[in-house]
Each structure stands twice: as structure tokens, then as C-alpha cells.
Write a protein that binds this DNA or RNA. Sequence first.
DNA 1: CTGAAAGCGCTTACAG
DNA 2: CTGAAAGCGCTTACAG
Lengths: 354, 354
Amino acid sequence: MTKIDDVARLAGVSTATVSRALRGLPTVSAATRRRVLAAAEQLQYAVSPSASRLAGGRTGTVAVVVPRITRWFFGTVVESVEEFLHQSGYDLLLYNLGGREQTRQRVLRTASLHKRVDAVILVATPLRPADVAALTKLEIPGVTISSGSGVPGWPCVRIDDVAAARTATRHLLDLGHTRIAHISGDPDDELAFTTHLDRRRGYQEALRAAGLRADPSLDVESRFTIDGGNRATAELLARGEPPTAIFAACDEMAMGAMTALRDAGLRVPQDVSVIGIDDHDLAGVLGLSTIAQPAAEQGLLAARILLDPLGARSADPYAGQVPRPRTDGDQPAAPVILPTRLVVRESTAPPRAH
Amino acid sequence: MTKIDDVARLAGVSTATVSRALRGLPTVSAATRRRVLAAAEQLQYAVSPSASRLAGGRTGTVAVVVPRITRWFFGTVVESVEEFLHQSGYDLLLYNLGGREQTRQRVLRTASLHKRVDAVILVATPLRPADVAALTKLEIPGVTISSGSGVPGWPCVRIDDVAAARTATRHLLDLGHTRIAHISGDPDDELAFTTHLDRRRGYQEALRAAGLRADPSLDVESRFTIDGGNRATAELLARGEPPTAIFAACDEMAMGAMTALRDAGLRVPQDVSVIGIDDHDLAGVLGLSTIAQPAAEQGLLAARILLDPLGARSADPYAGQVPRPRTDGDQPAAPVILPTRLVVRESTAPPRAH
DNA sequence: CTGAAAGCGCTTACAG
DNA sequence: CTGAAAGCGCTTACAG
């Protein structure tokens, strides 16, 4: 493998100059830079990341932690984060927690992130005090996406979950429903973060604002998955008289609910209306009404907040000159809240008796 | 930050011994190892990956390249690969091509993978000769998942796409259909790999075996996405008399087809039957008949084939002793083919006239 | 604008 | 089983 010495020799300069020229540092004369680039090109030189990291102290890598990459929201976030990161010259180290507590601890608490990445993006990751302490000790910048416990000094990008849930519930109320069930995340579920608490609160607030009382028998906890929605709905139906509408805390749960309703011989929306939150890729196919949230935008914004402070990457193909992640101290205190929007499709309609 | 010298001093040994003890090498006495581990624990020592990589020449990292992480198959594959890799002590560098030719070239052809990873897993990534040359020059082991052009010396894990398509088509034939349309990948589509060619072949073979001729007007090309399926079906319907059944090359296309049919006022399966390939998470919710393929298993198997040769990771929390990727030379020549299975749901039925 | 030299923090023959 | 020492391939003050 060619190394920097070979390039230096061919270009007739020192390795220091090669290093500077290739990284696009301004302190190199145009003529020298040209010679260095030509030499590097000719030798097909590629810098050794390990050596560069050890000497320079920067890894050019960002860790992205998600609960489950296969869920719509997380996949969509990762996709947009990945694009921005790679455009900016950063690599993406993926950590998929998969609901395994052990994995969460290994990633978050041990030093597995230590010296391995320059920054961290945590997507809807539940954080215990010990996790926060460990992350803080890492002394690297980070961003969290989605609500819940954050890390002091780290910006947060999310939607207003309470408001989204309120809007969804109000849509059902406006249609004339009064027996509105809610299916949402299990507090013991690692995937759920605290999002489900906010969404339940929005549901209850909307009911209260309409002069209704939240009926505990219409509130079922389950996982934030298709299967979770399916089970929760089956449980709901087993409890007796079905509700005339179901507000699911996410679209995947709503889809599970649709399946359970169909299996029970109930039609959507004639017998039961269903609404979710997300605007999942397949919401349109299923005719699912929902509260759309901008997933890709949240990912993009988080990545940008993390990297922007130091400007964009040089266009030079050899540039190691990448934006440095923002450091503690210049963080916005308030979370960045992105807007949501009601999307009415075929799964919601007035109750039959209406 | 504590470094290896600090641990060596506290344990009263050389840095070489610390290095060996922490990595679980056998050439360390039990007593010494104990002392080293205690010292490391006490100082909360964590090895510097950059230094370790530079000195040792191994990165402990595997690159995983996918067309689009948001598509069901790729997300599912990545999830299982991620779990196995992290269990084995490897990090996962994610590359999401996103259908951008420029990105594909940057990742595959430039030296961006060079010295950055120990191995590569390519999922359904279209490969031009120049890409194959660049990958070969990397001189690192790799595995490809999904059919199509491979890399010489790299094992391949996939399903039999021709057979899967044949089974899907035959299911429709068995129900009595004779006007069977096919919607599949566009050859210019970077996402499509060569999978769509195999699936079209299976479709044509099944028709021929039934004494039917493939009608070009019933064969529409489009992207392997929901929207692709939607457009292809709209195009199909615009061509005149609708088919009585549609075989979509993947479930996402099938879902798009269902939407297009509904929008055209056609019922599934009464007016048109629909079948796909995948057994997508939501196939059940939509009642979609399909050919199930084991996505997670393909990922797991690929990761295992890549890493297994050197055995499993030590249980030691400090172990850097991770399985070394298999090297060229001991590759199985034939691809590993995983089984598929017909799953009949509600989207397929005999044609009405039947 | 450029170079000589130290140093980043490990691992690996080599010797014992 | 253990240690001294070289070396991995860069970047970064420092000096000019």
C-alpha cells in the first residue's frame, strides 16, 4: 500500500505538506497542492483512517443508536441521517438496540463508544440515569431525536407528541365518537421511550376538553408494533362492548388494530374508526387516517445541528477536512419541535349510530 | 484518559502483557491476567480503537451496503446482520446507496472502504465491472446477499428467484387464471439488481409450462417500491382490458398494485388477484398472498459465513479477540440458497368467470 | 508557505 | 509466560 511518504517523495515535499495539501488546509501554495494531488492521484494514495485518527484525534465517525431499524420511523430517520453524514464526510456506525436491555447497556454504558466516534445521535432511546452519566463522561457532542429523557447539553429534535395525540383524538371527537379507545406503548417496553406517555396525555386532554372522561377499560398497553396493536385490540374487544373508534399511538399499532378488527368481523370504518400517528409508507395503501410526522426531516435536522457549526466539507476528494461536531456549551436549550399534520383517509368516519 | 501504560504500571507488568491479557491471549498466566483485569477495571481503562487498529492492522469493523434501508427486505437483513456482528465484537458501518449512482461509485470505487473495514457485506448491490475490480483490489473478504453479479471469491447467500417467481405464477395458474400480468423492476433502476430478471424468467417459465404465451402488454417495468407498483398497475390498466391476476416481483410493488386497483374501482381478489414475493411485515395486515423469503436468515447466514472461520468471540468484556473474517481461498463456490414458501392469504382467488 | 521531529497509543515479532 | 523495543502511518506544534 502506498503511504504518505511515497506521495511526499514523488511530489518532492515533506509528509507534513502532503497531509496539509490533501486535507485542503489553506496554508499550502496552489502550485504545491497541485503537485501533491497529482502525486497522490498517480500513486492511488488513500489515507489510513487509523493512523489519521490516532494522530489527529478525530474519527470522522458518528454513532447512530435506534431501537429497531425495521420500524418505519427509525428506518426513515437513519436513511436521512446516513445521507447527510456521508455527504459531510462522516461514517455512520449503526447500533440497533432491538429491545435487548443487555445490548442497551453494552452500547450506552461500557466504553464501546469511547474513542470510536466523534458524536452520537440517539433516536428514541430510553435513558436511565446511569446511561446519561456514561454518555456525559464520553465528553462528545450528541443529539437526541424524539421526546423523553435527554442528555444535558445535547440538543433534541422531535415533534409535539401531546399535541399530535390531541389532534388525532379530536378528529375522532369531531366525527361524533365518544367511545374512543387508546392503544399505546407498554412502560416496560424498551422501544417505547416516553413517547407513549405524551401521546396518552394528549388523548386524555382531548377527551377532557370535550367533557368526556377517559375510560380505563378503553386504554390498553402494548408494544409499538403491528403485533402489539393486534394484541391490544384483541384484548380491547375481549373486554366487552367495542369502542366506536381507536386511536393508536403509532401507525404500526393502528395497522395491527385493523387486522384484529377484521379478524373479529368488524369493519373499518363502518363499525370502528382507526387513526394512528406517523404517516407510515403504507398508511396510504391501507387507507389509514393518521397524524403525519416528518421523520426524514427530524433525522436531517439532527445531523445538521450536530455537524453544522464547523461548516461544510471541502469538495476535494482527498479532503479529511470535515466539519467538526459542535461542542458542549453552544447548545440551544429548547428542543426543536417539528410540525405534524392530520391526514384523513378512509379509516375514520362518523359512528354508525350517528 | 487512562492508557495502556497506566494499567501496566498499576498491574506491575509491561504494556505488552496488558495488551495480551486484555485480549484474552492464551500466553498469559492466570494470576497476571487477574491482576491486569483488576487494574484495568480500577482505572476504567478502555483501549483506543485507532491505536489498536494502526498497530494491529485490524479494524474490527464490517461495512454493510444496502440499496435502501427503508425497504422491508434490507431493513430486516441489516437488523439480523447487526445483531450477529455486535455479538461477535464487530462494529457495523452502514452505507445506504439510496439509488444514487454517484454514491454507489463513491462507496464502491474510491478507497472509502480502504483500511476502514475488515470485511464487506453487499446486499443486492448492482455491480459494474469497475466496481468488482475496485472491490477485488481491496483484498478483503466479503459476502453478497441476493442474486446477480458477484465478486470472485466472495460467497453468496440468496433465494432461488426463478423458482420463487415460478411458484407465485403457478399459484395463479392453479386458481384458473390465464390473463396474468407481471410488474417488476426497471433495468435502469439501481435498486433492482438482477433480481427482477430472474423473477421475470420464473414468471415466463411458469406460463410456458402451462402452455401459455407471455403477453408483453401484460408485463410492465417499474421500481421495486410501493409507488413503483402503483404506477405500473395504473399503466397496466390504461393499456386496456385488465388482467385477472397480477404477480408483483416484490410485496411492496404488490401493495402499490392493490392501491392502484382500488383507486380504479377494482376489487381484490374478486376482480383481480394479486401476489408478491417477500412476506413483508404488513403482508398479513393487507391479506396479501406471497412467496415468503427468509430475510433475517439470509443476513445472519451471510454474517456467519463471513466471520465464523475464526470461531466465536471471547466472553471477556475487554476481549479484542474477535473472529477474523475468512480470507480468500476457502470460499464455497456455489451460492447458499435458502428456501421460499407459498403463503396464501386473501388477495388471490379464482377468476370471476371461472 | 514549508519541513524536521515528536508523538498519538497501541501490537508484534524477537529474545529470553 | 513476560518484557524491551520497534513500528504501525499519520498530524501537529514549533521553528523558520
